[in-house]
């Protein structure tokens, strides 16, 4: 069955009406997963609802407490926002890695999240930054942490008529930075074999006072590895602490073997990536301190 209907609501209430009648519908943000899915037969909506005419969904707003990224805002727009890349360089790294320039121009962090691929680049970076999902449904709004939003490979927590409106990232406190790294055989145009996003906070003495480490492509969903964060807390991010964090990351990983890599390889590499991402984040903090 082909797509029978294309609608482009201009407000959230119109969007809710558009999805309300039981017709198999798909939200369209950048389309870089949806349209491929339709082409390859994995998705088959009768109705496509374009979200990009709804101002809230493409807005990027920065206030004193949080950065709010509209669910359909393109990665390109986020990357060229005046505040987001400097506050969340790791998230920017992740968004920049989602496909080519052409893909980045269309894809959105919200779409990347909703598509819920185990290998999605933005999800570990969002989790590391403590991002929350603002969700609108027929009965009103709810908020969910990103790590709880993805429930399985290509499965998210949205009910059929619910809509992800925006991602809310608390602004980093002083002494905080993030980083994201992934491993792909090619430099670009590739799917992560493993990925690691970290956000750490260090006080003036160099002590780690907060940490979040999330890993991708090594489990059915991206994982927040609390044990890894605990290994770093209170440390000077010395080798012992980092080794412990890496060990925790590897212990948490439960990957599969597939065409993109073996389980053994992924477990090893996700540790390497976490360690390197920690080094990058620390370097960013030190640069900001100096």
């Amino acid at each position: 069955m082909a797509v029978q209907e294309f609608v482009s609501p201009t407000s959230l209430s119109e969007a809710q009406q558009a999805v309300g009648d039981g017709t198999a519908s798909s939200w369209l943000a950048g389309g870089t997963d949806l349209l491929v899915g339709i082409r390859l037969g994995a998705r088959d909506p009768a109705r496509v609802i374009d979200l990009k005419q709804i101002p809230e969904l493409t807005a990027i707003q920065v206030d004193e407490t949080a950065v709010r990224i509209g669910a359909a805002a393109s990665a390109f727009d986020v990357l060229h926002n005046s505040d987001v890349p400097s506050q969340f360089p790791g998230l920017a790294e992740a968004l920049n890695l989602i496909g080519s320039t052409q893909i980045t121009g269309r894809c959105s962090a919200g779409g990347n999240l909703c598509n819920a691929s185990p290998a999605a680049d933005s999800i570990p970076a969002l989790i590391a930054n403590g991002a929350k999902c603002r969700i609108l449904g027929p009965d009103g709004e709810r908020t969910l942490a990103v790590e709880d939003f993805v429930v399985g490979p290509n499965q998210n927590a949205l009910a059929s008529s619910e809509l992800l409106i925006e991602l809310i990232l608390p602004r980093p406190t002083p002494g905080t930075s993030d980083a994201y790294l992934r491993l792909t055989p090619r430099t670009e145009m590739d799917i992560a074999v493993a990925g690691a996003g970290v956000s750490i906070t260090m006080d003036e003495s160099g002590e780690c006072t907060a940490a979040r480490i999330a890993i991708g492509a090594v489990a059915p969903t991206a994982l927040l590895v609390e044990a890894a964060a605990e290994a770093l807390m209170g440390s000077q991010l010395d080798q012992t602490a980092i080794d412990a964090a890496v060990a925790a990351v590897r212990a948490a990983a439960r990957p599969i073997c597939d065409k993109r890599g073996t389980a053994e390889y992924r477990i090893h590499v996700v540790g390497v990536l976490a360690s390197r991402a920690l080094a990058n984040a620390r370097a960013r903090i030190k640069k900001a301190h100096s």
């Binding site: 055989p185 090619r186 430099t187 670009e188 145009m189 590739d190 799917i191 065409k259």
Partner: peptide, 16 residues
């Protein structure tokens, strides 16, 4: 064939 596309049949790209 498990990789019948340019995403998983990895020919070199410019940045490689």
């Amino acid at each position: 064939l498990e990789n019948p596309g340019f995403l998983d049949y990895r020919i070199p790209v410019a940045s490689d």
